[in-house]
Simulated scan of single mutants.
Amino acid sequence: MRRTAPPRPLTAVLALGLALGALTACDTGDTRPPHPPGGLTAQAGSATSVHVMWESAAPADGVTGYQVFQAGRLVRELPADKTMVDVTGLAPQTAYDFTVRARDAAGNRSALSAPARATTPAARAEDHRAPTAPPATTGRAEGPRAVRLEWAAATDDTGVSAYDVLQGGIRIHTTGPGERATTLTGLQPGTAYSFTVRARDGADNSSPDGPAVAVTTPPDPAQGPGTAPGAFTATASPGTVDLAWTPPDTGRPTSEYQLYVNDRPVTVIQFGSGAVPAGRASYRLTTTEPAGTLWTLKLRARLPDGNWGAFGEERRITLPG
């Protein structure tokens, strides 16, 4: 498998970005604070933790980070791409108030958000039994950037305390124990997503994932044709994985694709000038991973403007022996 060159260290990139942002802000005399974060919610995940979430800032605000407060005390600082956090080390059966504020590159800080309150449940001593998985999940698109999910209740000997929604194996949302549905926003138009739901109890035991549900958001007419590769397939054989897809309509032949395995970029697939696929494209990976390894694969194309397009459908495979 050919891999791309390693990226620059994230800490160095962030430090450089913050420094350049600060210089630019100083040069322009930026004294205008960002807007306070909106949509703040807090949900107890266990007897000693609370999951806090909020909406991303508008790009025009130039936000570089967030500060999370509990009862006026700073408990976490996060970069701009993080809009959720688990606050741990809390006491059972206790109400907690949280607020968040945004910070830009010039050091301007927003006003605090509206507060959100959560009450941790009682601790359950010696509880090592996880809840059952939610037995069913359904989903539907609600426009180009939103999906509505619904699931059936899980069971637990001490009671479910929260439900976690995962996309591509990563938790993106948490709801309360009495909720059986949620609307996820901020998604990409014309993109296929796979979601699962798992349950947690007051001792922070997590269930297995419930059944996955696939939902594809419709294209946004304002953005023109979809940019995601279509009809993506992945077929595993001993030592190889064969990929195939339909190139997106980008206005010109698409010669470069980025492949992700288990939500990490692993290679860039490039076709030479005389081999750019006009119809169905294909590519073969070689692998020495052991039999039984689970892979989730997704693909996106390099657009004519140099940016990466939307991801196509995710595919899950188990490598054979």
Rank of each mutant, 00 (worst) to 15 (best):
V63F: 03
P36Q: 08
T94F: 02
D86V: 13
P36W: 04
A80V: 09
P37Q: 03
T94K: 13
G89K: 06
E77W: 12
S56Y: 14
L78E: 09
W54I: 04
Q67A: 15
W54C: 05
P79W: 02
T64E: 13
A42N: 07
T31C: 12
P36K: 10
G39N: 07
Y66W: 05
A57N: 01
M53N: 12
V50H: 08
A44G: 05
L74G: 02
T83V: 15
T48D: 11
R76D: 13
V63Y: 01
Q67N: 06
V85A: 10
T31K: 05
Q93A: 15
T94W: 02
A95C: 13
D61V: 10
T48C: 04
S46C: 12
A71Y: 12
P34L: 05
K82H: 11
L78F: 11
G89M: 05
G62L: 02
T48R: 04
T88M: 04
T83D: 00
G65F: 05
F69N: 03
G45K: 08
D86S: 14
R73A: 13
A71K: 06
S56C: 03
Q43K: 11
G45S: 15
P59D: 12
G45N: 02
Q70H: 07
F69K: 10
M84K: 12
Q93H: 08
E77L: 13
V50A: 05
A47G: 01
M53E: 13
R73T: 13
V63A: 07
Q93T: 11
L74W: 11
R73S: 12
Y96T: 04
T83H: 09
